[in-house]
């Protein structure tokens, strides 16, 4: 009682019980599970000095891995941006046989363990796999190349875009679009001037979710990637390798670099989204 009276701004009084126990448990659990471990990630890269940290993250193998993880994540998310919008559009606008099943299927990558997706994709796209065998005569190699990384990241990122855009498309005022139609606007013009501006913020949200997931993706990638240093080795794998060499500081450095880069990328995306919103729909 004395505490709540002396700190009136920190907590609004309430007749409901359980504030202090809930706060205590929440903060203790959060600290134990999230904050202390993350503190280690932030503190430990520097234990051999700033120069050592810099040497680690600018090492050509690390740079190549970061470039691959971020570059492939970006391209995969762009591909999903287009295909996700088309998929969401089909699911919301058209009543075709199997629509509900297709709708439920969108969530599979959320639920399917990454290792399962990983070995399945690796087998499908291997030179003797169902798809790999089709592509081999064309001279296209997917498995064990950077292209394989891209395929895996596309497969995990699809639902993020669809699930972000779907509700917006659903709520899009049908009358606005019909009005555009009666005013004689053609199909492309209608999509460009009416639909796209309305779903743009949701597209950006979906893109950033898919991108964040793809950057850190591990299980579905390592089986299909081939993991050749400088070529098809992703950043998370490099962390695993450094840990197996007991290079804790090096592993932490790569991890921190990934975290900082992806927060920076998300920040840029968010600022872009804010500008988009401010321009008005």
């Amino acid at each position: 009682m004395a505490l709540t009276l002396s700190l009136p701004r920190l907590r609004e009084p309430s007749v409901l019980p359980g504030f202090w126990p809930a706060l205590g448990f929440t903060v203790a659990y959060l600290s134990l599970i999230v904050l202390i471990p993350l503190a280690a990630l932030i503190a430990r890269p520097w234990e051999h000095g700033l120069a050592d940290f810099w040497r680690t993250v600018t090492d050509s193998r690390v740079l190549a891995a970061l470039r691959l993880s971020f570059g492939a994540a970006f391209i995969a998310s762009l591909v999903n941006l287009v295909m996700g919008l088309i998929t969401a559009w089909a699911l919301v606008r058209y009543d075709f046989p199997g629509r509900r099943l297709l709708d439920a299927m969108v969530d599979v990558p959320f639920a399917l363990p990454t290792a399962v997706a990983g070995i399945a994709l690796a087998t499908l796209y291997a030179p003797n796999g169902w798809i790999g065998a089709l592509l081999a005569p064309l001279g296209v190699k997917v498995a064990y190349t950077p292209l394989g990384v891209l395929v895996a990241l596309i497969a995990v990122g699809l639902p993020f875009i669809v699930r972000s855009v779907q509700p917006v498309l659903q709520d899009l005022d049908a009358e606005i679009e019909e009005a555009a139609l009666t005013l004689g606007a053609g199909r492309w013009r209608r999509i460009r001037t009416v639909v796209l501006p309305a779903v743009a913020p949701a597209l950006v949200t979906g893109f950033s979710l898919a991108f964040a997931r793809a950057v850190g993706e591990y299980g579905s990638v390592i089986f299909i990637a081939g993991n050749m240093p400088l070529r098809s080795e992703i950043a998370p794998l490099l962390i695993v390798i450094k840990l197996s060499q007991f290079d804790y500081a090096g592993a932490a450095a790569v991890g921190l670099a990934m975290l900082v880069l992806s927060f920076a990328a998300l920040l840029v995306i968010n600022i872009g989204q804010a500008l988009l919103l401010r321009r008005g729909r």
Binding site: G216, I239, L259, L266
Partner: peptide
């Protein structure tokens, strides 16, 4: 934790 790479979620425990 949603924005952490799974590998980082393992790494931090090794660091501790």
């Amino acid at each position: 934790p949603f924005s952490l790479s799974p590998v980082i979620s393992g790494l931090v425990w090794v660091l501790v």
